[in-house]
Design a protein around this nucleic acid. Structure first.
Lengths: 367, 367
DNA sequence: TGAAAGGACCGTAACGGTTCAGAACCAATA
DNA sequence: TATTGGTTCTGAACCGTTACGGTCCTTTCA
């Protein structure tokens, strides 16, 4: 007792073994393999550990030796805190957390500030694998993750061919939504979308920018729209598409305003997310436009708030997406060639979509 | 080149150094201290690294050596995924994530299944500190955290004296809310509260259980109520207090039903969270009781949904709480004796509270 | 021309564990 | 008596890195 009064340096496995006069192996076994030593010795080890204030094997040293960190990393392109503000992201996180919990694995949120090119946080993350959620394909953090020699699952990305992937058919889902609107008679539309690249561009989007978009999800949703409306005889290059960097209702409102200012005759506002759509609806209300009588508004995602508002949208299984990503990553069983999972979506016809005002004669073109 | 054709074992700092004919230190410096070697050698190191597929210094080995994990751990008493379902928890997480981001630190969600006593996940977490959020004071995971030799901040816990603490004055806030109701004339009340201990007890709560509650927050809120109503001449032991293990609206509804079945004459339903209160309101509606004309309902937290419903409640700064916890933990500056931070709350008088029906004559007792 | 300064690089010693192939011992079996 | 088998514990080899305290060589300046 006296000699351990002033614990200059904290106790280690070695110092504990020395104190007890046994080998380090034995102390290690006392913690990790109780069946490898006699119960009384084990008790003596644990008692002495308590007396010396030894907190048990150091997790980092253990990780180094076992090559297991016991955690998976999550990379987001947004500020970390954004993940807790966006309903879809929250759902994804919940699903991912579920999968981690099942496996007894920790979930490390990696701070990847999109403003800076600093990828040190990715290099510093002690994890057994990465989940990358909705990151632009030219993000340096993504590149840094792909260089790490650990399994990776990407979400809402193009199929990279080298790592597992989870996603939905954004293009097809949006195509179906567009067909619904076309069937109703809409031909003169406006679009509000989320950011298409890492640079801020709050305004109209050129066709070039649409094609070159680094956010796979947004690019595909727009392309689904373009395809459907082009087929219906609409000149896509004339359709006003407005982009917003920040993803919140205010952006949806201001984006809708910008579209309506450019062309007050649009009969439908198609938004690439429910959050934007909810914002667009407030803007419509502000202008005295009734939804859907005067104008149709649609979203994408199927979040709670949209459901309550009766939003016409595409519901995607965000929770399942997170869970699938986690399962894919943690499933050590089949580590065959990269797997690609597409989850099903559902077109929700709500009460925010209807035939265009005075557009009944166009119903001929319906499906 | 030829000898590195078949990379049996992945490249390390040492193998890279050997290949280059320089010391390990130099390779390390190439990554960590570019100013310590000539630019051309650094380039040569990095080029060779790329050629050999060396992904840069191993984060775990680095953590072992530097004694820094670059992450803080978060311990929750609930299933991990619950954190993404409860509005208050989400707010807390957002604040904590904000603080971590500022410091460039990762945030590790530690899987601590409350059902099992298995604390291995706590032992396995490679972190520089812990934040413990709303955990019962007898939780073995909490004990395991406190044994780890890293700084810790507890939230919504009693002041342990040994670690930093962040919280609010739950007791005082609930006392003030109670005074408001007493001023309105309420004397015959019912209470719906969240779980008081780790065991499931969906039903009425004895005074003993209230006092022995292991959830500090719930205990204090109840004791604030008890104090105010006792002062107003109400026999607290006769007040129906119903507990619910699960925290969601359904629990609020069934809890309210249980109270109303026991005493249909109650004029106010006091809930210890907004989520429970929202559930209680749906149950009131189901019974044809108008709020607040027929019955008063109050909550606690100040979540978005409550605000929209005009709920009378106590607003607490959940985001600030998370941020404060993170700041306290990451502030290496003043590591003086344990600090205790109490954040301010605000009593929100909404439209779900009013004088009891036929209780106008009791207004004499108002403030 | 000699002393001091500075840049570039190196060797050694941790950091704190886990793992695996035995050694030592003892009891039971053939 | 020799063999077998089981239990309990040990020794030494890693895991991949960074901190520390040098050495060596080239410049600079009085």
């Amino acid at each position: 007792m006296a000699r351990s009064m002033h614990v200059r340096r904290p106790a280690t496995l070695a110092s504990l073994a020395a104190e007890l006069g046994v080998s380090r192996t034995t102390v290690s076994n006392a913690y990790n393999r109780p069946d490898q030593l006699s119960p009384e010795l084990r008790r003596r080890v644990l008692d002495t550990a308590r007396r010396l204030g030894y907190p048990g094997p150091d997790p980092v040293a253990r990780s180094l030796r076992t090559r297991k960190a016991g955690a998976v990393g999550l990379l987001l392109t947004e500020n970390l805190s954004y993940a807790f503000r966006d309903p879809a992201a929250i759902g994804f996180l919940e699903g991912l957390a579920l999968a981690c919990e099942d496996a007894g694995t920790g979930l490390l949120l990696v701070p990847a500030n999109p403003e800076r090119e600093d990828v040190a946080s990715v290099h510093r993350a002690g994890v057994d694998g990465f989940v990358v959620y909705s990151v632009p394909d030219d993000d340096p953090h993504l590149a840094a993750v792909l260089e790490r020699p650990v399994p990776t699952v990407v979400c809402d990305q193009p199929d990279l061919g080298t790592v597992d992937r989870v996603g939905i058919d954004d293009r097809g889902a949006m195509y179906d939504l567009a067909r619904h609107l076309i069937g109703l008679g809409h031909r003169r539309i406006g679009v509000v979308c989320m950011r298409l690249a890492r640079d801020r561009n709050d305004g109209f989007v050129t066709p070039d920018r649409q094609h070159a978009a680094h956010f796979h999800v947004q690019r595909n949703r727009l392309s689904g729209l373009a395809e459907a409306f082009s087929e219906a005889g609409v000149d896509w290059s004339q359709v006003p598409v407005v982009e917003r960097f920040d993803h919140n209702m205010a952006s949806g409102a201001s984006g809708a305003a910008q579209v309506l200012d450019r062309d007050p005759q649009v009969t439908a506002l198609i938004c690439t997310s429910d959050v934007l759509a909810l914002g667009a609806m407030t803007e419509a209300g502000r202008r005295g436009l009734r939804v859907p009588h005067d104008i149709t508004v649609t979203g994408f995602d199927g979040i709670r708030g949209g459901e309550e508002a009766g939003l016409t949208t595409v519901r995607q299984p965000v929770l399942e997406k997170g869970r699938a990503a986690g399962k894919l990553l943690l499933d050590t069983n089949e580590r065959s060639r990269p797997r690609s999972v597409n989850l099903a979506t559902e077109l929700i016809i709500g009460k925010t979509s209807g035939p265009p005002r005075g557009g009944a004669e166009e119903r001929w073109f319906g499906p």
